[in-house]
Every structure is written in C-alpha cells, then in structure tokens.
Amino acid sequence: MTLRLRAEVSLAEAEDGGGVLLDERSGEYWQLNPSGLTTLKLRLAGADEATIAETLLAGAQDGTGDVAQAVADIRELVAQLADAGLVVGG
C-alpha cells in the first residue's frame, strides 16, 4: 500500500528546501527539514527505504552517514508523520 497524504493535509515547499505541512482538520502545521521533504516526496512516489537512504546519503557528499542509520531515520520520520495524522498507508 502506497503512502499518501490525508485529504485535509497540504504540503508546501519552503525556500530553504524544506517543507510545511498544514492539517486543515486539526489546525496544526508542521515543518520538514530538506532531507525530511526529500524523504516524504520519494515515499509518496512509492520509493522504497533503501532508495531513499541512498538519495539522502548521496546528498551528504562527504561520506557521512550509513545506509542502516538512514533507513532507521526514514522509518522514524514516516512513523512520526503517521502518528501526527498527516499520512495514511505505507
């Protein structure tokens, strides 16, 4: 099942490369840092965790981070998005 934003949730990209999520149902709004936005967009497009992890690590450009840690971080972010009621599926 593909991850998707709830119908009442809007996503806007910020100038710093991050994103803002607005939940019109609860009135809450949230901020994603640039790697968070990359993770969400790729996840919404159906990319798997390994692909997203490689993308995040490639963006680091200095060899910092490792795939296992990146995958764990991706899972943590998706869980936070689900707990906040911003996404369904996945």
Binding site: V20, S26, G27, E28, Y29, W30, Q31, L32, N33, P34, S35, G36, T38, T39, L56, L57, G59, A60, T64, G65, Q69, A70, D73, I74, L77, Q80, L81, A84
Partner: peptide, 13 residues
C-alpha cells in the same frame, strides 16, 4: 548527512 526531521510549528484556529 542530515537526519530527516518533522517539527510541529503550531496550530491555528
């Protein structure tokens, strides 16, 4: 490497 993060900014009426 930058860990992906989600931060609640607030809420509105």
């Amino acid at each position: 490497y930058s860990k992906p993060t989600l931060l609640k900014l607030g809420s509105f009426e």
